[in-house]
Amino acid sequence: MRSQHLAIYDMDKTITRTPTWTPFLAFAMRRRARWRLALLPWAAIAGLAYVAKVIDRAKLKQTTQKWLLGGSIAADHVATLTNAFADHVVATGVLDQARARIAADKAAGYRLVMATASYAFYARAIAERLGFDDVIATESEHDPAGALTPHIAGENVYGPAKLRAVETWMAKAGLARADCRIRFYSDHVSDAPVLEWSDEPFAVNAHGPLKALARAKGWPILDWRK
């Protein structure tokens, strides 16, 4: 079987200048219900609970979505919000060198895959605009009417869960690991499982712990912020 070439990218702070979840919440609140901005201190409390390890990242994301965006959002409203947000991110928040690398991988025949812990409902819109072929992200539950709820469907695609999600996606896509050449780009040490598993791991815009790990492993260190 012909080898498949995959270029898998993390999104937040790898492709984008900043994380995207808090900016999405602020963007959506300004368009959906400005009065919810008054609840930001409660979201900060949830953040402190996460730092104190009282709650995990999945609970933090679900809690902040419920408090700041409400219990559910109609599907058509979600589409309007996510399309507008994706337009904003792609216009102002994507690193130029990330764009160049994505284009180079595509030109070299790589299948472009975004693998992010961010929510799929807006990550897909961003990925589509950047020319990605596939998206692996944290999925959300929907109510019987199709409205978006704050509840995560399955796992929060973070840390070891990201590798499991990538492997699940590959199995569904009919891609055997032995038949694939995989490069993976990430800024954060939480992605160490996928970096270790890939054939070509790249530490991009790396924070201290990932930079130290990359040096110890001999992985290339790239800085797309310059």
Results as ranks from 00 to 15, higher is better:
residue 29 M to I: 15
residue 31 R to H: 08
residue 32 R to L: 13
residue 33 A to D: 15
residue 34 R to W: 15
residue 39 L to A: 03
residue 40 L to G: 01
residue 40 L to T: 15
residue 44 A to K: 13
residue 44 A to L: 14
residue 45 I to R: 14
residue 48 L to D: 09
residue 53 K to M: 07
residue 53 K to C: 05
residue 56 D to K: 04
residue 57 R to E: 04
residue 61 K to N: 02
residue 62 Q to M: 11
residue 63 T to R: 14
residue 64 T to R: 15
residue 64 T to M: 12
residue 65 Q to C: 02
residue 66 K to H: 10
residue 68 L to E: 01
residue 71 G to R: 12
residue 71 G to P: 06
residue 74 A to F: 11
residue 75 A to L: 10
residue 78 V to P: 00
residue 78 V to W: 08
residue 79 A to L: 14
residue 83 N to A: 11
residue 83 N to F: 04
residue 86 A to D: 01
residue 88 H to R: 12
residue 88 H to D: 04
residue 96 D to F: 04
residue 101 R to D: 01
residue 102 I to K: 03
residue 102 I to T: 04
residue 104 A to W: 12
residue 109 G to T: 07
residue 110 Y to N: 03
residue 111 R to Q: 14
residue 114 M to I: 14
residue 116 T to C: 03
residue 126 I to C: 02
residue 129 R to H: 10
residue 129 R to Y: 10
residue 132 F to R: 04
residue 133 D to G: 10
residue 137 A to R: 12
residue 138 T to E: 05
residue 139 E to V: 12
residue 140 S to Q: 15
residue 141 E to N: 06
residue 142 H to K: 10
residue 143 D to W: 08
residue 144 P to I: 13
residue 145 A to V: 13
residue 145 A to Q: 13
residue 149 T to Q: 04
residue 155 E to L: 10
residue 157 V to W: 07
residue 158 Y to P: 01
residue 158 Y to A: 03
residue 158 Y to L: 02
residue 159 G to D: 04
residue 163 L to K: 07
residue 164 R to V: 09
residue 165 A to L: 12
residue 165 A to G: 07
residue 165 A to K: 12
residue 166 V to Y: 05
residue 171 A to H: 14
